[in-house]
Nucleic acid binder design. Sequence first.
DNA 1: AAAAATAAAACGAACGCTCGATATTTTTAT
DNA 2: ATAAAAATATCGAGCGTTCGTTTTATTTTT
Lengths: 222, 222
Amino acid sequence: MALLSMEEICRDIFRENQHRIKIKKEAVAVRNLVNIFHTTLKISNERGFQTMSLRDLSRVSGLSMGALYSYFSSKDELLEMIQNQGRRITLKVLARCVDPGDTPLIQLRGAIRAHLYLTEVMQPWFYFSYMEAKNLSREQRKKAIENELVTEEIFMRILEEGAQKGELEVDNPPLTAAVIKAMLQDWYLKRWKYSRREVSVQAYADFVIGFVESVVRKNSSN
Amino acid sequence: MALLSMEEICRDIFRENQHRIKIKKEAVAVRNLVNIFHTTLKISNERGFQTMSLRDLSRVSGLSMGALYSYFSSKDELLEMIQNQGRRITLKVLARCVDPGDTPLIQLRGAIRAHLYLTEVMQPWFYFSYMEAKNLSREQRKKAIENELVTEEIFMRILEEGAQKGELEVDNPPLTAAVIKAMLQDWYLKRWKYSRREVSVQAYADFVIGFVESVVRKNSSN
DNA sequence: AAAAATAAAACGAACGCTCGATATTTTTAT
DNA sequence: ATAAAAATATCGAGCGTTCGTTTTATTTTT
C-alpha cells in the first residue's frame, strides 16, 4: 500500500506537467515538488489554504518566491495540482483493491480496508481535499463531487450484488453505502480524536467491518 | 423545534454582548444581526469565511462597512459570535431532548432524531462550524472540540446504560458512538447529496435508527 | 557554461479596519 | 403640533498593510 511514496507521485506530476514547469531536471524538480506539496498540506491543514500566503510557503519550505513560481504559475494551479493527483490515486487504489471474483462479503471487507488504509497513509491529502473543496473552480468542484459519488458507487454495487445473490440483506443500498462512506471519512477527518484515544487503523477497520456486517449479513453466525 | 428562530437567537446575542455592540436600540440591532449572520453563513458556506471579504458582506447585506463594525469589532469576533451561539444551542436542545426516564432504546432514538432535526433546521450554522473550526483561536478551537466530544458522550452514555441494563448489546460504546456521530454529521455536511436524491430528514432518521438498532439490539424481533 | 535558486524590490489589487460627514430617529421645548 | 436639539445609526472614501505575482541582478549548483 505504501508503494505510493510522495516521490513517485511527484515524479508523475512532473512528467505530466513538464510543459508548465520551468525546471528541466527531473531529480531537482521532484525533490522540490515533494517539498512544496508537503509544506502546502502542512500549513493548509492547520490554517487553511486561503490563509496560507505564498510568503508563508516560501519561508517554511525554504524556497524563494521565484523558485516556487517555477513549479506552478498561480496559487490556484497549485491547489488544482494537489486535488488532481489525490483524486487519481484514490480511484486507482480503490479499483484495484476490489476483486470482482471474490464474494460480495469479501469484496466489502476489502473495500473498507482499502479505503481506510489509503486515507491513513495519505491523511493530509484527503483532509485537504475535503476541506478545500469549496475553494475550487466550478469544473474542479464538479470533479470532486463526481469522485465522492464514484467511491460511494463502489460500495453500492457490492451491496447490490450481495443482495442479488442472496448473500447479503440490504434494504436500501444507496443509503447504506452513504453511511459506510461517512464512517470511513470520519477516520481522516477526525484523526485527532482517534489518535488521542489510541485507536489504530486496524482496530477501526475491524470495528467498522463488524458494525456493517451485523447489519447486512443474513445470519449472524460465522 | 423551530422555536429557535433567528430573531430569538440574535436577541440573546445582542443582550449578552450589549457592551461590545455600539448599537443601542434592540429592534434595530436584532434586525441587522439577523441580516449579518444570515449573509455571513450564506457567503461562507459557498466560498469560505476567509475568502469572504467584509466588502462582500457589506455589499450582499446592504449594510455599509461602518455599520458592520458597529456590530463587531473585528472579523474574528464575528466568527466567534457565530460559533459561540451555535454551540450553546446544540447543547441546550440535545440535553432537553433526551429523557433519562425512557429506556435506553427510546433515548437512543430520541437523541438520533433530535440531532438530525436540529442540524436540519440549522444546517448552515453546523456546516459553518465544522468547516471553519480551523480558523478559530486556540481557546475557541478547544471549545469546539469539547463540544464535539460532549455530543458524542451523550450517545455513549445511552449505549452504556443499555448494555448495563442488558437491553442493548454494545461491545465498544466509544467507537459505536463515534460512528453514529459520523453518520449524523453526514446529514448536514453532504446536504447537497441527500437533497439531490430526495431523501428527507425523516427518511434518513428512520434509516439510521434502523441501521444502528440492527447492530445494538439483542433480538431483531419487534 | 548552463541550469536553478536566491534575495530583494516593486506592482496593482484587495484586504481589514477607521473615522469624520451625513442621515435618521427620538427627545425636548415651545 | 411642530420645530429645534440631541442621540443614534449609517455611510463610504481612505488608511496602512498584505496579498499574489513579476522582475531583476546575483550567486550557487551541476
